[in-house]
Each structure stands twice: as structure tokens, then as C-alpha cells.
Design a binder for these strands. Sequence first.
DNA 1: TCTTTTCTTCATAAATTATTCACCAACACG
DNA 2: CGTGTTGGTGAATAATTTATGAAGAAAAGA
Lengths: 230, 230
Amino acid sequence: MSKRVLVVEDDANIAQLLRIYLEKDGFVVVGAADGGAGLLAFRQLEPDLVLLDIMLPVMDGWSVCREIRATHKTPIIMLTAKGETLDKVSGLEMGADDYIVKPFDMKEVIARVHAVLRRFGGESATVGGKKLFFDKLVIDMEAYTLTVDDKVVDAPPKELELLFHLASAPNRVFTRNQLLDEVWGFDYFGDSRTVDVHIKRLREKLEGVSETWTVKTVWGVGYKFEVKTL
Amino acid sequence: MSKRVLVVEDDANIAQLLRIYLEKDGFVVVGAADGGAGLLAFRQLEPDLVLLDIMLPVMDGWSVCREIRATHKTPIIMLTAKGETLDKVSGLEMGADDYIVKPFDMKEVIARVHAVLRRFGGESATVGGKKLFFDKLVIDMEAYTLTVDDKVVDAPPKELELLFHLASAPNRVFTRNQLLDEVWGFDYFGDSRTVDVHIKRLREKLEGVSETWTVKTVWGVGYKFEVKTL
DNA sequence: TCTTTTCTTCATAAATTATTCACCAACACG
DNA sequence: CGTGTTGGTGAATAATTTATGAAGAAAAGA
């Protein structure tokens, strides 16, 4: 479930520094030393955020930014040397979401990364950060609790995350592979029947609680959290 | 060491006036004429206080305020023209600490600047001392004491800080990495098991004291200070 | 410097959860 | 009905995560 960050930076020292701090905070970091490599890496990795140096060999940061923006809305933070003229306006016109002036304070960079991701909804201020309310059911990802009929029910993280994911988009069907990707993580390789077992355990906790919603199987497709519109 | 004030104001006359009075009072003043420049200056300068006009070209004062608040606790005083609709509530919701309506009396501005700085303990961007009260538990970060059942219990700084941080957001789960970032500091590179050990020692001091709260493990996620809502 | 306290690391045991697998049931379709 | 496919379930196993005691390192105090 960890977020991927693409760092496009030709100065190996800075790149390394960024990598160290980002990885410590749980990001998966991929580096690219020039614009072309950056674009390539972007398309392969589809990262959640891009840190992009302006001064790059061959293809500069602005071009990369524009290329990315042509097809993606992935948040981009520009890294700029102090001398380089830039005003926020032109930066924003190019489609950057934020920019940081070198030489920068690592603390600032990390804070900005989190801030931008938060702003893009990809990351919440807290671990999960959201609550969902249904009839006799509360899914609280902030406290990591499942409340059924006003009673707190113990549920392991995976089960909660799965239920939260399903209930985040009521009535929408998710295939097992989608769920594995989105709940377990893109890098999970395992039997898709694993989902079945978690669904089963969820049902044990949720059966017969309310008439207005249910975890339903869509034969041949997957699962959905069905909510009846009364 | 004199305090730094960032003035974000597009009207050169007002900016000049503020500069004169503030410098007379021993502040170092840095000016910015629009929101983008303001943010840039903020990040580079890390001022002790920000005077922020609401009406700014390109990016308005509230946006700047929100951006700053995303990462810093630096006190912010908003400057607003009389006509501008504003109620204290919305300003404060944005994270401003005070606001002054134009045209303003210089004396008043200076007085408010001092007042706000005093309120913030003269420190920039730091978490001020605070106290938290729970049933049979007082966490006092001013005196750095832990009071359990009316008796002061000796607790090392790290333990106190950890407990304070958890108890500052009751029922919210923190991952070990979050705690390391937020309590130990973003530049701490250490084993995340360190948190466990501190939790353990806290529990030794806190177990069985009250039914209404507890330091709880959220398996696979982290820890939280759980408070029962009775 | 020496002593004491606090912090961190490490190893291991214990607890909890995740995954796999085998087998049976339910479904779709001719 | 019969058959091939898909889903449900229980139990065994694997993997992960946490608690804990103890020792060494670091920091603070005397």
C-alpha cells in the first residue's frame, strides 16, 4: 500500500538524500537522472508523486512536467536552484503543484511531500483518516475500529481495510484482482482466493445486522458492498 | 536575537509603513508582494510571525495561510480591508491567529504583534507547553510531569512526549513511523521497535489506573490512546 | 571523570493474523 | 440432468507482528 515517488534529479547526492528520507517515511522511491529516463520511469511506474528538478541534462524539468501533464494529473513538486528565475505563476501554468528552492531543508521537503499528497487525497492526516457511516455500522479508519450495532467488534486490519474499500464505493463491484491491487497493494502476489476468506470472516461479523446493506457476491465477477436505497 | 516578521502585502505604502514601525521595535522585516512570493519567502526565512493581507494578486491570503498551516504553526495575523466580508470564525478556521481591519492604527498593529508573539511564548513554530487532563491522569508538558491518581510519577522525557502526543489525539491510531517522525523528529533514523519499548514502560506506569482510557495496540498498525466515551 | 539515568538495540517467546488447500455447494448452460 | 466453473467454508500452516527481558550505548548529572 506504500506510495511510490519518482525522483528526477541529476545530482546524485541530492537524489540519494531524498531517497533516504523518503524511504524512511515508507515511500517506494525510484530515481531517474535525466528527463528522458524520468518520463520512461514515470510511464512504467505510474508513481503517486513526482519530485522534479528543473535543471536536467538533455530534457529540462519543465518539458518533463508538460509531458506528464499531457496525460496525467499526478502531483508534481519542482526542485529549483536558487538562481533560476521562476515565479509560482509560471510554475503553476506548467502544471506543477508546488515547488521548493534549493538548497533545501530536508524537513521542508518531506513536509511538502506529505502536504501535497494530503491535498490530493492520496494521503490523509492520519493513518486511514476516514469514517463511514451506515445503518448500525461505523467503519472508522482513524481509530481502526468497526462498530456494529453500537458495539465495537474486533477486526484485523486487512478485514477492516477490505470492508472500508468496498464500502467506500457502495454498489460498485470490485474484482478480486482489483481488491488485491487496491487493498493488499500493487506488489502483492498471491492467490485471489485469499479475498474470499476475508470476505467470509467479514460476513461472520456482519450478517443479519441490517436490512439496508450487505456484502454481496457478484457471480463470476467479484464482490460489492450493496446498499439498498429505501 | 531579533524576531523575523514576514509581511505579505501588495500595497507598497502599507508595506513600507509596517516595515518602519516593526523595525523600530527591533524586528527584522521581510516583505513579499504576492502570495507566491510570500510562500517562497516563508519557506526560506522561517519567520516568527506572518502579517498577511487577504487581498493579494494571483493567490489570495487565505490560500497562503492554509499552505503555511499545512506544515507550520507559525503565528499569522491577517490584514483585511474594511469592505471584505470576513467573520472572525472563517479566518480562524483557516488557521489565522488574529486579524486586523484596514485602515489600521499602527500602534494597534504593533500591540497585536507583540500580543500574538507573547501568546506563542516568543518561540517560532514550536509546540508550546500544554497540559492534558484525563480521569486520574494529568500530562503536563510545561512542568514535564506525569500525575497519576494525584501522585506525581517520574517519567523520562521521551516517555512523556510520546504519551502526550498520543493523548493529544485520543482514539487516533499512530503508526510507529508517524510517532518516530513526530515525537523523535523527522531526522531520526532508528529501529521502530524503540517505540514498543517506550510504550511498554508507559504501560507499567499507567496500567489499571482508570477504566476510561488506555494505551492500546492496534495490531498491524500502531498505537493509540483510547478513551471510552461513557 | 565517574555515576546514574535514560535510550536504543537485540534476541526470543508469545500472540495474532494471513494464506493456502482440500472439499463441498451453488451456479450457468447445453 | 450432467458437467464444467465459480464460490463458500473449515482447518492446517505459514507468516507477521508484538511483548518482554536484558544488555550495551548514549546522555545527563554530580
